[in-house]
Simulated assay, not measured.
Amino acid sequence: MTIQDLKSNNLILFEAISGSRAFGLATENSDTDIRGVYYLPKKDFFGLNYIPQISNETNDITYYEVGRFVELLQKNNPNILEMLASPEDCILHKDPLIDLLKTEDFLSKLCKDTFAGYAISQIKKAKGLNKKILNPIDKERKSILDFCCILEGQGSVPLKKWLLKHELLQDKCGLAGIAHTKGMFALYYDESGTLGYKGIIRHDDTNQVAVSSVPKDEKPDAYLFCNLDAYSTYCKDYREYWKWVSERNEDRYNVNTAHGQNYDSKNMMHTIRLLQSCEHIFRTGSLQIRVENREELLDIKSGNQPYEAVIQKAEDLVRSIEEYHSTANLPDHPDSEKTTGILVSIREKLYR
């Protein structure tokens, strides 16, 4: 079933413009997103062809089956609650049956987890992005040799530098573990190559140093420390960084680096808006869609506010939400029996 099928068969119950235009944050470059609610033909709903959601290829137009819509409302999903509370000038179509669903029947203290919880995850994401932008990782991957050093006097020397200084080859070295230590090895060198040493590593992409069998009468040439913890952290950061590079939106990345603040300014604008919306819910017991601080939010989107200031603003809002949440006159959860009953009434009218 496609969106065109929904329209051709008059199955759409609700349709509205969502996103920046609904929030009052649209600019000339803003996209137009559409969200809606539909119901399935009787034979599909009662049969084995239940379809909870239908979207176009770019996901900027999405419709939810009315049962799925109510289920998400009961979970206090931010996008779905804001969709139900769409401003009148954003509503393209509304069946009178949708008026049976009221935001006040769904708002609850769960919003702290759904609104603020999601926003907090975005703050963490912004911090991670900030770290990636400020700390790029070379494409050429380091080997475990870069995390090894040779103990020398009261200090240490990087292994590669030590090998170069003494004109030694890593594949002629042999390592033997030292009891009761972590990452420490005695290093032996076999210029003749007759003792069968395995080298410090067998190949460049190995995740472990090699340990060799060393004759008992051999004396170590040096002592080596391998920082496996640091190497493991580097490998994780390397994977995450280059995965991010391969998946990032280049246009948005270029905008974010151009304004010099090194964070996803558009995402942080919506994060602040979401936190302010959550604070409003617990302060007033109602959901407000249109923002009252358009210029402030667009200023964040434009990257005119330092990263640290935006993060501080978000953290202040989180603390405020905690305070209002403790005294808010809202139920812990929506009344599932009541709201499910409303859904049943809607279906009865649709399928009578």
Score class of each variant (00 low, 15 high):
residue 1 M to K: 12
residue 8 S to N: 15
residue 14 F to K: 04
residue 15 E to L: 03
residue 18 S to A: 14
residue 28 E to F: 01
residue 30 S to T: 08
residue 33 D to C: 08
residue 34 I to D: 05
residue 35 R to L: 04
residue 38 Y to T: 13
residue 39 Y to H: 15
residue 41 P to R: 09
residue 44 D to Q: 13
residue 51 I to F: 01
residue 53 Q to W: 02
residue 58 T to N: 15
residue 60 D to A: 00
residue 63 Y to L: 05
residue 64 Y to D: 12
residue 65 E to Y: 02
residue 65 E to P: 00
residue 66 V to D: 08
residue 72 L to D: 02
residue 73 L to Y: 07
residue 74 Q to L: 15
residue 76 N to V: 04
residue 77 N to M: 10
residue 78 P to E: 06
residue 79 N to L: 10
residue 82 E to V: 07
residue 85 A to V: 06
residue 105 D to Y: 11
residue 108 S to D: 03
residue 110 L to F: 00
residue 110 L to Q: 14
residue 113 D to R: 08
residue 116 A to W: 06
residue 122 Q to V: 10
residue 130 N to T: 11
residue 132 K to N: 12
residue 136 P to Q: 03
residue 137 I to E: 05
residue 139 K to I: 15
residue 143 S to H: 02
residue 143 S to Q: 07
residue 148 C to Y: 07
residue 159 L to N: 02
residue 161 K to M: 06
residue 167 E to G: 03
residue 167 E to S: 13
residue 173 C to L: 02
residue 177 G to I: 15
residue 180 H to D: 14
residue 181 T to P: 13
residue 182 K to H: 12
residue 190 D to C: 07
residue 191 E to N: 12
residue 195 L to Y: 03
residue 198 K to N: 08
residue 200 I to G: 06
residue 209 V to H: 07
residue 210 A to C: 08
residue 211 V to D: 01
residue 213 S to F: 10
residue 214 V to M: 09
residue 217 D to W: 10
residue 219 K to L: 13
residue 227 N to A: 04
residue 227 N to K: 07
residue 232 S to W: 02
residue 237 D to S: 09
residue 240 E to G: 01
residue 241 Y to P: 09
residue 244 W to I: 05
residue 244 W to D: 05
residue 252 R to N: 08
residue 253 Y to M: 07
residue 253 Y to C: 08
residue 255 V to T: 13
residue 258 A to M: 15
residue 260 G to D: 12
residue 262 N to F: 14
residue 263 Y to T: 04
residue 265 S to K: 09
residue 266 K to C: 04
residue 267 N to Q: 09
residue 267 N to V: 01
residue 269 M to F: 03
residue 271 T to C: 11
residue 272 I to C: 05
residue 272 I to G: 00
residue 272 I to M: 05
residue 273 R to Y: 14
residue 274 L to R: 12
residue 278 C to A: 14
residue 281 I to G: 04
residue 283 R to H: 15
residue 284 T to D: 11
residue 298 L to I: 13
residue 299 D to S: 15
residue 302 S to P: 02
residue 306 P to N: 06
residue 308 E to W: 03
residue 310 V to E: 05
residue 319 R to H: 08
residue 320 S to N: 15
residue 325 H to K: 00
residue 326 S to M: 11
residue 328 A to H: 12
residue 329 N to C: 06
residue 331 P to F: 03
residue 331 P to T: 10
residue 331 P to Y: 04
residue 335 D to H: 07
residue 339 T to F: 09
residue 339 T to K: 04
residue 341 G to D: 04
residue 342 I to R: 07
residue 342 I to D: 10
residue 347 R to K: 13
residue 349 K to R: 14
